[in-house]
Design a binder for these strands. Structure first.
Lengths: 208, 208
DNA sequence: TTCCATAAACGAACGGCGTTCGCATCGAGC
DNA sequence: GCTCGATGCGAACGCCGTTCGTTTATGGAA
């Protein structure tokens, strides 16, 4: 069963989550799809095991009252990178039960950082939810975009220039702000947008 | 084609997005699945049409510098309610092209509110992205939870009490904060969590 | 009114998905 | 050496999105 999870993660890492089918996974293990059901009750169950493994590999820091913002950012960045190592797997997270023990472990870690940082209990509790949700959604969106760029036959390679060109080509009468801020809207290398939104939330938490 | 979109939305409204298959939709229109492809190039294309219709029905306020926070909240709440009228459809949004004209229209509206409120251009541009993403993710998560509660044979009805019981039953040694804040973690009627996270982001924007 | 070109609609099928069922196969206990 | 229970798996089921070749309906020309 350990081996099943390992193999599944391998498939996802190289071909993306949508390539992970029971048949593909069985083939990778030189057997038929039926045999998988001896080790895993469901595809949904498999998904949960995958998410569990993903979160299990995430290291949590010892809470430091002076550095709670950076620590929060670090843990979220860790989750992000973990998600992106297995493109598209964040889809499974949104469907996963919030009672998985490894997810709870990370939640506990986030909660500890927030409380140590002096955030009020109710705010901290809800912030954990918000952060987990945002990171998963961000990675899901990114994975879908990548997948499109790779799969779709040309013309979906929306590099920044192409996107900028398309936005500036909009009718300025109907989209005054959008066209004027085309540069800002399409700006952002790497995870700048991710950092921005996380900063937004953390600043919001700090100002309560 | 208009009729196809209408019927599809009807199916989603009553049975959820995952029930919308080409066959089901065709059946609803008293025809075979092949006939749909005369009006719609793809299921992906259909999804985009649905999202377009969804966003088209969203009313945007005239930006008011004194009320930009409330206006932002209102538009986001409108999106949220629109998503929830068609459970699960937010899944299609995350996959939808950001170049759909109706999505751009809403983006323009959000941008106008933010800029009128005095938010810096770069922050405003990225905030639009963050808000759209968060609302879609929130609704997706909610839809999945509802679907589970309805579909799964009992025992997934995680009402607040059941969830609270399960959280407090965790080993307090490994999850000190989680168990201590069980009440806070499971708190939140209606869209309290939604309001909280939006407030977090908006406060973050205001403090820049 | 008759005829035919053209476009729209459709029945049937394809390949692939998750999942199940019942038959082989094999090792352990008598 | 023989039986018997557990394990593994080939084949199939009922779905899915999509395509192909044919049938049907339409509307302008003769």
């Amino acid at each position: 069963m350990e081996q099943v999870v390992d193999t599944a993660l391998g498939v996802i890492a190289t071909e993306g989550y949508e390539a992970l089918t029971m048949r593909r996974l069985a083939g990778e293990l030189d057997t038929g799809p039926a045999s998988l059901y001896a080790h895993v009750v469901n595809k949904a169950d498999l998904d949960e095991l995958l998410i569990g493994r993903l979160f299990a590999e995430l290291a949590l820091p010892e809470p430091d009252p002076a550095a709670w913002r950076e620590q929060l950012r670090d843990v979220c960045a860790g989750m992000r990178d973990q998600y992106l190592r297995y493109p598209g797997i964040s889809r499974a997270t949104l469907a996963a039960a919030p009672t998985d023990v490894e997810i709870l472990r990370v939640g506990e870690g986030l909660l500890a950082i927030l409380l140590t940082g002096g955030v009020a209990p109710q705010a901290a509790a809800w912030a954990v939810d918000a952060l987990l949700l945002y990171v998963a959604a961000y990675c899901l969106e990114l994975s879908i975009a990548h997948q499109r760029a790779a799969h779709e036959d040309t013309a979906w390679v929306v590099d920044r220039d192409e996107l900028l060109r398309r936005v500036t080509a909009l009718p300025a009468a109907a989209f005054p702000h959008t066209t004027r801020l085309a540069a800002e809207l399409t700006a952002g290398e790497g995870h700048d947008r991710f950092d921005f939104t996380l900063g937004l939330m953390i600043d919001g938490l700090a100002s309560r």
